[in-house]
Amino acid sequence: MKTQNYQNHRKFYAPHHFIYLPLVIFLQGFGVYKIFNDSVNQLMWILFSAVIFLILFLAVMVRQHYALGLQNRIVRLEFKQRYFELFSLRSDKVEEKLNFSQIAALRFAYDDEFKILLEKALKENLSGDEIKKSITNWRADEHRI
């Protein structure tokens, strides 16, 4: 494997970036072209273009769904790491008792408040929104998408 540098650091998924998306974009353009240049079958080309647009839209939305799912996994990993750093214990038992909303909300608390709010969330089953409202010293997350 090559050593990564500026020239080769980008990663493309060839079937998606170089086959699927160009093909769908071409078909969309072709359909729109035919709408204006084939008056006999104009309705068919409108339907064709609408279907291709929906396929393109679905492809974009699936990518967004994957990105959000991955981001949620990273939030969980951050919780595990932070819990381990603060308590020197694995977080498996605690994490089972919390839902994702609670875990995500705890990210906004600094360490001293994190401990208190975690205990409170476990005892009183605070919602993620209640946890956020309880934070007095907000720890901003400027990297969430």
Rank of each mutant, 00 (worst) to 15 (best):
L21G: 05
V62H: 08
N5P: 00
L54Q: 07
E95W: 03
E85W: 06
E78G: 13
G31F: 01
N99W: 10
L98Q: 12
L118I: 01
Y33W: 15
K93A: 15
Y13H: 10
G69R: 15
Q42I: 06
K80M: 14
F79N: 02
I135W: 01
F108N: 00
E95L: 15
V94I: 15
N8Y: 01
Y83C: 07
M44S: 11
R107V: 00
I135V: 03
W138G: 00
E130A: 13
R90W: 05
R76L: 12
R82G: 09
F48L: 11
Q81E: 13
I52E: 10
H143K: 00
L47R: 06
R10V: 04
E130P: 02
G69Q: 12
R76T: 11
L56K: 08
F26Y: 15
L122D: 05
I103L: 13
W45R: 05
L27N: 11
I135Q: 00
F114G: 02
A121Y: 01
I145S: 08
V75G: 00
L27M: 15
Q102C: 08
L117N: 02
I131K: 01
L77W: 08
E113L: 05
H17D: 11
K97S: 14
L21H: 02
L23G: 02
L58W: 06
R90S: 13
F84V: 06
I52K: 04
E78R: 14
Y6R: 13
S134Q: 08
V94H: 05
H9C: 15
N99E: 14
E96A: 14
M44V: 09
D92F: 10
R90F: 14
E119I: 02
Q28T: 10
E130R: 07
I74W: 03
I52A: 08
I52L: 07
E124N: 11
A59R: 04
I55Y: 05
R76M: 10
Y20K: 10
L21N: 04
A140H: 09
S127W: 02
F87A: 07
V62D: 12
G128F: 01
Q102L: 10
F84Y: 14
K80Y: 10
E85C: 04
R144T: 00
R63V: 11
G29V: 07
